[in-house]
């Protein structure tokens, strides 16, 4: 029970972090059809910006400034990069962001060095909030949950209750029609792209000190965020939310349960020995393949249900 509650909480924190990244990506992807490979790179940039800013003026201004900087970078990418290659089709756009991801990783290495930087949790939040069955739950994780929940609420209200949100929703499903009605769709694209990257930056600010701020963090996070977006389905923020939490929980729980297929077969009275065919596959324990599960799920869902969990159209 103890393991279950602790894993549930940790999975929730990780899932919400995933959601902060994936929500921006899913908006960009469903609207412009661009799978932004540089999204996780901006997440990394957010963490590094926050680290540098917090060295001078502290963590709290960084919480505002770093996402703003990331949003500006996003707007620049959209206006001078994506819009230019747009006429060459989606593949060119995808390749552009792919190249940007390479460059950003290298620039980060060159600016902040190859080793992790000591980006730490602010002292104000560095205490255990409560205990579950003797395990401490840090206040910072609660803060992460709070920020991401606030953000989810803000996006939800923004999309449902404001005029801009309505136009975005219209452009999300019917870009040509929204454009024909006189809305400036390219400007909405820039806005959404900037907002999406700013969200990724915010995720970087609060995720960078929860995980490790290092040049490889974009590479480890990027593919998982893709999985979440594809799994949740195009054009659906709710699907994205469910997928994020689901992936967070899967990844955390997979580490906890030390079982393998061989154990499962043993329940039915089939013993797996070294001579059994595929013995190696059957003997692999769940924690070892935990990192694989999201990709397995993504491949399966793309093959059998390409529109994802709650998507409105095919990928």
């Amino acid at each position: 029970m103890e393991v279950f509650v602790v894993s549930l909480l940790n999975g929730l924190v990780y899932g919400m972090l995933l959601f902060m990244l994936a929500s921006g990506l899913t908006l960009i992807f469903s609207m412009m059809g661009v799978l932004n490979f540089a999204h996780a790179s901006v997440y990394m940039l957010g963490a590094y910006f926050a680290y540098t800013i917090s060295l001078y003026v502290g963590f709290w201004p960084a919480l505002i400034l770093a996402p703003l900087l990331c949003g500006l970078i996003g707007a620049a990418i959209e206006m001078w990069g994506l819009r230019r290659v747009h006429r060459h089709g989606h593949v060119a756009e995808l390749l552009l962001t792919f190249g940007l991801a390479l460059i950003i990783e290298k620039v980060v290495q060159m600016t902040w060095g190859l080793l992790p930087v000591p980006y730490r949790i602010p002292e104000l939040l560095d205490f255990p909030l409560f205990r579950v069955y003797g395990t401490q739950f840090p206040a910072y994780r609660a803060f992460m949950l709070l920020i991401s929940a606030l953000m989810f609420g803000a996006i939800w209200l923004g999309l449902r209750r404001t005029r801009v949100g309505l136009v975005i929703q219209a452009a999300l499903t019917h870009p040509e029609m929204a454009s024909a009605l006189g809305h400036n769709v390219p400007r909405i694209f820039t806005l959404v792209f900037a907002a999406g990257t700013a969200l990724a930056g915010l995720a970087g600010v609060i995720g960078g000190n929860y995980q490790v701020t290092e040049p490889a963090m974009a590479f480890t996070m990027g593919p998982i965020v893709f999985v979440v977006v594809v799994f949740g389905g195009l054009g659906s923020l709710t699907g994205c939310f469910i997928a994020s939490i689901f992936m967070g929980l899967i990844q955390t729980f997979a580490v906890v349960f030390d079982v393998s297929l061989a154990d499962l077969l043993a329940q039915f009275g089939i013993a797996v020995t070294a001579s059994t065919p595929f013995a190696e596959v059957l003997n692999v324990t769940l924690p070892r393949i935990g990192a694989l599960l999201p990709f397995l799920l993504m491949v399966l869902i793309l093959v059998f249900r390409p529109r994802g969990l709650m998507g409105t159209r095919d990928t």
Binding site: G33, L35, L94, V299, L302, T315
Partner: peptide
């Protein structure tokens, strides 16, 4: 795009 994502996974 779906092909690209499957191959990535």
């Amino acid at each position: 795009t779906a092909f690209a994502m499957i191959t990535l996974g």
